[in-house]
């Protein structure tokens, strides 16, 4: 199997997925229900990325004291909710993560 051909094909597939709706815009009428779902895309997609990172350890649910990512993440969620500041949220999350990793 030629690695280069595989890469180029996968690159085209990836690009076409990303271009799909951007390219189709104006050529088809996006249904109104579809359009009204779009504001939820960042919330749904990004939460789906984050949740397993916090809740799973080695692929298993880990609601335990030793899961430092979970508790640092919970703290970060609180900080983000109160101060709505990106850098502060990251700093607080990392600080909590470092402290918890050192303790545990």
């Amino acid at each position: 199997m030629n690695v280069w051909w595989l890469m180029v094909t996968c690159g085209i597939v990836t690009f076409l997925i990303r271009f799909s709706f951007i390219g189709a815009e104006g050529r088809w009428a996006m249904p109104s229900w579809f359009r009204s779902a779009l504001p939820f895309v960042p919330i749904a997609a990004l939460t789906a990325l984050v949740a397993p990172e916090l809740l799973l350890v080695s692929g298993k649910l880990a609601l335990i004291a030793e899961n430092s990512r979970l508790w640092a993440g919970v703290l970060a969620i609180g900080v983000a909710a109160i101060w709505r500041n990106t850098l502060l949220t990251i700093a607080a999350g990392f600080a909590a993560f470092a402290v918890l990793r050192a303790i545990i």
Binding site: T47, L49, V50, A81, R84
Partner: peptide
Amino acid sequence: FALPLTFIAIVVPMLTDRVRVAT
């Protein structure tokens, strides 16, 4: 861990009502 933290910083301020929290 910076990636989930950054995503948290982006998503949490968007959760402005119950429908979004449920989402």
